[in-house]
Design a protein around this nucleic acid. Structure first.
Length: 470
RNA sequence: GGCGGUAUAGCCAAGUGGUAAGGCAGAGGUCUGCAAAACCUUCAUCGUCGGUUCGAAUCCGAUUACCGCCUCCA
């Protein structure tokens, strides 16, 4: 039985989607005014891993993740670069697609943009104004938060105990306009020449929270199964989404709220964020690091725990990735020297490991126990592939299983191929040199190939090769 | 000030009452022409203090430290 920790109830709950067999999930995406940093990547990876596991469990998943492509930061970025908000968005959305592809995040995602849903946003806000949930003050529209009975339930806060302006991000003018300090903007009046749209309240643009409510309900329906994002979004962003959505539809907005922990960095494990300026972009990281390493590091940390990003954690992920690839290579190599048929006892042991994996992952995506099962399978694979007699079908079964389970973590296991004839010649030359006990020549060849990134390994079944990763 | 999270070996980390999974790094070994890879062995009493219990990392109380949120944030 799959259980998910719901931020709203702070409990693990049995997962039962609204429609049996189908999961509707929405994950808050980035504001596209810069390259994404590894904190953004963490969120995308965490929920992509959730998605892959749900699919493994047989669910069909419809996945929506937005791009916030208009807000103060977008406007400032456009101004600084003497270009348009749209151009900034296009540039960084393209970069986002590249970066997330390198992290092997599924591309089967609907990516709506706020600016492409303006009429729907205006309609949504209009409904809230009409039913008394929101009010217009001279072109700015605010939501009456206190009027929503359960306001504060998601973040578990008592509205009266909020320290007004604690984060020091709200201007005096804005405070003066609101009926109540906790009210939040649905629609922002245009300040002169900045990007804007016509609306019943004059020229303006959407507030931040409204886009997610609009796009979530538009693409996935009034009640969705999973809504995800970083834990910094719990309040106010997700609480505001919940309030405004339910004030409009009078139905539960989200069944399971899921929030991922932060990526921390530095000796004091400080949260990585764009505003703190301590961020590493995925774009830069990929220049010298295999995306699969980052993927493994992040998908094997439980989504609610912080990830300490450091040289040590990257190194560990590198080693572990290599471990998986090696086990896969060892098996694949041995496939050529296997007896036909299968070995039921081996298959049974593999199935047991898969059962352990599933048990772990069913428990709120307990990936540490899940990956432990995968490492056990890798060890089992290595031991098996060194047996004197192995069976093709069993090897193939282990390969398929290893590939499938690693795939849930976003790790692609593929057979490396050597297309270069010259390299093959050298490998064959070395084999005959070894037969003639000409170890000087054979070591020479091994060194030469190593310098070209190809490592040779001698086994009882012959010489095998692998490409050395960077 | 309010709310929440975390504290387990050098590092990452599992574990919700019965005498501490797994991984990385380290050490020793097997295998190998030498290697590589793999495999085997080895490496902690769970922040501190007190309590409950036959028995606690696990429950209760207190305490300390670090991190996060309180309308920019994944």
């Amino acid at each position: 039985m799959l259980q998910i920790f719901n931020t709203l109830t702070r409990k693990k709950e049995k997962f039962e989607p609204v429609t049996p067999g189908i999961v509707h999930m929405y994950v808050c995406g980035p504001t596209v005014y810069n390259y994404i940093h590894i904190g953004n990547a963490r969120s995308a990876i965490a929920f992509d891993t959730v998605r892959r596991y749900l699919e493994y469990r047989g669910y069909k998943v419809k996945y929506v993740s937005n791009f916030t492509d208009v807000d103060d930061k977008m406007i400032n970025a456009a101004r600084e670069n003497h270009t348009t908000v749209g151009a900034i968005a296009d540039k960084y959305i393209a970069a986002f697609m590249q970066d997330t592809a390198a992290l092997n995040i599924s591309s089967d995602v609907i990516h709506p943009r706020a600016t492409e849903n303006i009429p729907e946003i205006i309609d949504f806000v209009k409904t809230l104004v009409d039913n008394g949930s929101a009010y217009n003050v001279d072109g700015d529209v605010y939501f009456r938060a206190r009027k929503f009975p359960s306001y504060g339930a998601l973040p578990h806060i008592n509205v009266d105990q909020l320290e007004i302006g604690a984060s020091q991000h709200v201007s005096q003018e804005e405070m003066a306009k609101k009926e109540d300090p906790i009210d939040f903007a649905l629609w922002k009046k245009s300040k002169g020449d900045e990007i804007s749209w016509e609306s019943p309240w004059g020229k303006g643009r959407p507030g931040w929270h409204i886009e997610c409510s609009v796009m979530s309900t538009k693409y996935l329906g009034k009640t969705i199964d999973i809504h995800g994002g970083g834990e910094d979004l719990i309040f106010p962003h997700h609480e505001n989404e919940r309030a405004q959505s339910e004030a409009k539809t009078h139905q539960t907005f989200v069944k399971y709220w899921m929030h991922n922990g932060f990526v921390t960095i530095g000796d004091d494990n400080e949260k990585m964020s764009k505003s703190l300026g301590n961020f590493i972009t995925v774009h830069d990281l990929l220049k010298h690091l295999d995306g699969q390493v980052i993927r493994l590091l992040m998908s094997t940390t439980h989504y609610r725990r912080p990830i300490q990003y450091s040289d040590a954690s990257v190194q560990e992920a590198k080693s572990n990735l290599k471990k998986l690839q090696t086990a896969f290579n060892n098996l694949t190599y041995r496939l050529h020297n296997a007896e036909s048929g299968d070995d039921p006892k081996t298959d049974q042991e593999v199935r047991q490991i898969v059962a352990d994996f599933t048990d772990a992952m069913d428990d709120d995506f307990n990936v540490q126990n899940g990956i432990a099962a995968v490492y056990e399978l890798a060890k089992f694979a290595n031991t098996y592939s060194e047996r004197s007699v192995v069976f093709q079908l069993s090897i193939q079964f282990i390969i398929n299983t290893l590939k499938q389970l690693a795939g849930i973590f976003g790790i692609k296991l593929e057979q490396s191929e050597l297309k270069d004839d010259e390299i093959w010649k050298l490998i064959h030359e070395r084999e005959s040199a070894r037969k003639n006990k000409d170890f000087i020549r054979s070591d020479e060849i091994r060194e030469e190939l190593k310098a070209r990134g190809i490592v040779l390994e001698d086994t009882p079944q012959g010489t095998r090769f692998r490409k050395e990763q960077q």
